[in-house]
Amino acid sequence: MTDIIRARGLVKRYGDVTALDGLDLTVPKGTVLGLLGPNGAGKTTAVRILTTLLVPDAGTAEVAGIDVGADPVGVRERIGLSGQYAAVDEHLTGFENLDMIGRLYRLGRDVSRGRARELLERFDLAEAADRPVKTYSGGMRRRLDLAGALVAKPEVLFLDEPTTGLDPRSRTELWEVIRELVQAGTTVLLTTQYLEEADRLADEIVVIDRGRAIAQGTADELKVEVGGERIELVVERDDEVPVAREVLSELAAGDVQVDDHTRTLTAPASGGAKTLIETLRRLDARGVSVLDVGLRRPTLDDVFLSLTGHVAEDGTEPAVAAAAATGGAP
């Protein structure tokens, strides 16, 4: 398999801040790489370097066999970028936005128009095509931005946090669109703060923290490293907590954590749903009333805690961090 993205030792500093600290990346053709990390990890910086928007202080990168520094225009002809914030012109209509991009790719008037209509249709924006983007919802803007990245049918697609800030439904819709693109053969590098998103879309995940890759593997491999899924259950009465704890420790793959105040118990469950069912059976047999129970997939926070021993620290966007934490719960 040929590697369509290859980056070696990327370094980028902003004053005292080292945004990238020797990052290596390899993405085989036709696959999806998920770059997973908290706010400030260096995801956007990596994407900006690979898409020729930023020159690294050190390191080399090749995209589609072309050196990013030596022939940036050649790279730009082969990539599509959908940045962290939808870069669409509010005053233009959806159609005008895409047509403008097509013309700037020198598609020619008719081809450009045809392509714009085709993409609007495909991204479920045909109805809104001739309305100014100002009237679009967040999800519609994001789809239009993604459509903009696809105008010239790029070989490689860069998506920087494509679903951050979207409601769950728009997120699922966008996932669907990205999956279709991948099926059609596009190579994708996407960044995300959600383990679940990387899990759904990526063949391979690179976890980055402070500009360095700290882990790499498939979603399953990472989850095993993190301890996989956890059972989380809430019992009705205080006196049931010790019993539940006993049952859980018989079945769990590790320590049981108990929060007496909320009567919540959690424990790693290596057997997934089977373990969950067995737990419920035994709890029932001993007369414990369960208020709430579920299998919780590990979140980015869990991944970080186990990989780095510290919680994904940052604090610039607490709302996003909170969303990432709940994003992993089924």
Binding site: T51, T52, L53, I79, G83, Q84, Y85, A87, L104, Y105
Partner: peptide
């Protein structure tokens, strides 16, 4: 501010356009 320059800069268009 709106990232539109980034979009332009990611296209193979003229740098002064």
């Amino acid at each position: 501010q709106k990232g539109i320059i980034d979009r332009f800069r990611s296209l193979p268009m003229s740098r002064s356009a």
